[in-house]
């Protein structure tokens, strides 16, 4: 007897193994499509602004959704799902930053340069882009989650894995730094040539 016939349900994707039971996700494809429509743009914005790389944001967004669908995600509403999705994306970003950088220009795919060129005009117009690049990745994450996504300190702690008690202080420092950079940027722009 071929072994595939012994596990038809698993191969057909109808009934996963016990270990993946929670990943069988009560979310069907239509529900996922709805959730994707509601969350994808803000997730991409988070990844693109925090990483300062549009092509990387594309890749990490896809990977975030794949992991979200394969893992046992929360079933108690969109807010919790969204938070979980941001947590996956945050971990992926962290993994990306920890990975050693490519040392040779030949190792970098052509698409990276193309994507960077496409996103460049939008970035240079915005005030936030240059200021974000001067901040530490963790500060960018905290600021985006707090002021763009409107997450509370407890929610930010959940997404980033940092201690809830330290969020307030870290966020205060990051905000002060960002405000100074933005003011500096504004005064540079206003200065006559």
């Amino acid at each position: 007897m071929p072994w595939e016939t012994a596990i038809p349900d698993v191969l057909a994707g109808e009934q996963p193994l016990a270990g993946l039971a929670s990943a069988s996700s009560p979310m069907d494809s239509e529900e996922f499509a709805g959730f994707y429509e509601r969350s994808a743009r803000s997730l991409w914005a988070y990844l693109a602004r925090v990483s300062c790389d549009a092509a990387l944001a594309d890749d990490l967004m896809q990977e975030s959704y794949l992991r979200f669908l394969c893992a046992a995600h929360p079933t108690d509403g969109d807010v919790a799902r969204r938070r979980y999705l941001f947590r996956i994306a945050t971990n992926l970003l962290r993994d990306h930053w920890r990975r050693p950088r490519a040392t040779s220009i030949e190792e970098i795919p052509e698409e990276v340069f193309r994507a960077a060129d496409e996103s460049a005009p939008a970035d240079t117009k915005a005030m936030l882009g240059p200021a974000m690049k001067l901040l530490r990745p963790r500060d960018r994450q905290l600021l985006w989650l707090a002021y763009a996504e409107g997450y509370s300190h407890r929610e930010i702690a959940e997404v980033t894995g940092l201690a809830s008690a330290s969020i307030r202080l870290l966020l205060f420092r990051a905000r002060r730094k960002m405000a100074a950079l933005l003011r500096e940027q504004t005064s540079k722009d206003r200065r006559p040539l």
Partner: peptide, 30 residues
């Protein structure tokens, strides 16, 4: 600044079809 950046960036997103993502996730799970 962040709220403005969020709405600008959200408009720049190139979204893949959710059906394709769903199918890839099914394949990965399998």
């Amino acid at each position: 600044t962040f709220q403005r950046a969020r709405s600008n960036a959200a408009g720049m997103a190139r979204l893949e079809s959710p059906g394709a993502l769903w199918a890839r996730a099914q394949l990965r799970r399998r």
